[in-house]
Simulated assay, not measured.
Amino acid sequence: MKPSAAEIAREVLRTEAAALARLSEELPESFEAVVTLLLSVRGRIIVSGIGKSGHVANKIAATLASTGTPAQAVHPAEASHGDLGMITRADALILISNSGETRELADMIAHASRFAIPLVAITRRPDSTLARAADHVLALPDAPEACAIGMAPTTSTTLTMALGDALAVALMRQRGFDRADFLAFHPGGTLGAQLLQVSALMHTGEELPVVPPEMPMGETLVVMSAKGFGVAAVVEDGRLSGVITDGDLRRSLDGLMERTAGEVATKTPRTIAADALVTEALGVMNAHKISALFAVDGERRLLGLLHIHDALRAGVA
């Protein structure tokens, strides 16, 4: 009886997971030296390979570039027809070949040798032509491919991709690459939105619906209506002493117009720090079923206001 698709999938995943565990245990001894080398590069990390290794090279270069290490993928065939000029003495070269005998890489190997460009090989065979030409070898475990005939690049590409991730993360940690840096490289899309701070979206200055505690509710309603957020900040001596929401208005309908803002306001409102992530602010809003949060500093001085619509427009939610 043929195995089911699910059984095949589990077998593939177990095979690749075992290979990854082995790579973790048998991390190449040169890994630290490679990280040190890449940290010293004044130019870019050039990553290349052919076939499936080429696709992996593109991914590794993209991950490096997005995490603080300037990198570029160069196709070996294009390199042989002029793109070798993209690779300078200030760069370092990472070449990927499972067998280490990929003939399309020959011109890039020769170029690295001619111009003393540091060369790192990622290969399963530490005795291969590529490995012998390299300054450093990141040898992959000799683990079986996960495909049915043991030939299609599956386990080997998974291992190479994971090793590339390990390099990128080690480099970003060594560089002190943080969330602010990550946002600078990811200004668009969901990743960028998730790393936005409240200060980037909050309303400030004249946009804020600010009232003193002694203001009559009739005037307070005018301010709330004019600013359009459905809330008002009650500020006393420059500090947030309360917040008026639509819910506070409903709870105080009886005799509302005879009261002051300070009498109607909630005295312990939810607030957020200006340097908090917008995702954190959105979580507070969702948890407490509110649509706006005032940002304050450590002494409760009012800094701004974030509305849920601001988060939605930025693509956070």
Rank of each mutant, 00 (worst) to 15 (best):
H309A: 07
R114D: 03
E207H: 14
L23W: 09
S113P: 02
A311L: 05
V284M: 12
R124Q: 14
E101A: 11
N98G: 00
S128Q: 07
P28W: 05
N58P: 01
S199M: 13
L305A: 06
G238A: 02
D275H: 12
P209H: 07
I94N: 11
A287Q: 10
E263V: 09
A180P: 07
D275N: 06
Q72K: 10
T160E: 08
E280P: 01
V284Y: 15
D237I: 03
A57T: 05
G43I: 00
G82H: 06
A232F: 06
A168S: 14
T129Q: 08
S4K: 12
E145T: 00
P76T: 08
A166S: 15
G298L: 10
A106V: 13
M215E: 11
S128Y: 02
A106M: 11
V198D: 04
M215F: 10
M151T: 12
C147Y: 05
E26V: 07
A168V: 14
A134W: 09
E101C: 10
A65W: 02
A232E: 09
G304D: 04
V296L: 09
E280W: 15
S99I: 00
L84T: 01
K267T: 10
V137C: 00
P126T: 06
I117W: 01
A73M: 02
R175L: 02
V278E: 07
Q197L: 10
D181R: 05
T279P: 01
A143T: 01
G54H: 08
G192P: 01
A112S: 03
R132H: 06
R179T: 14
A193R: 08
D246Q: 11
R114G: 01
A200R: 10
L171V: 08
I50Q: 15
V243A: 09
S53D: 05
A274E: 05
L163P: 01
A116K: 11
R89C: 00
L249H: 14
V47S: 06
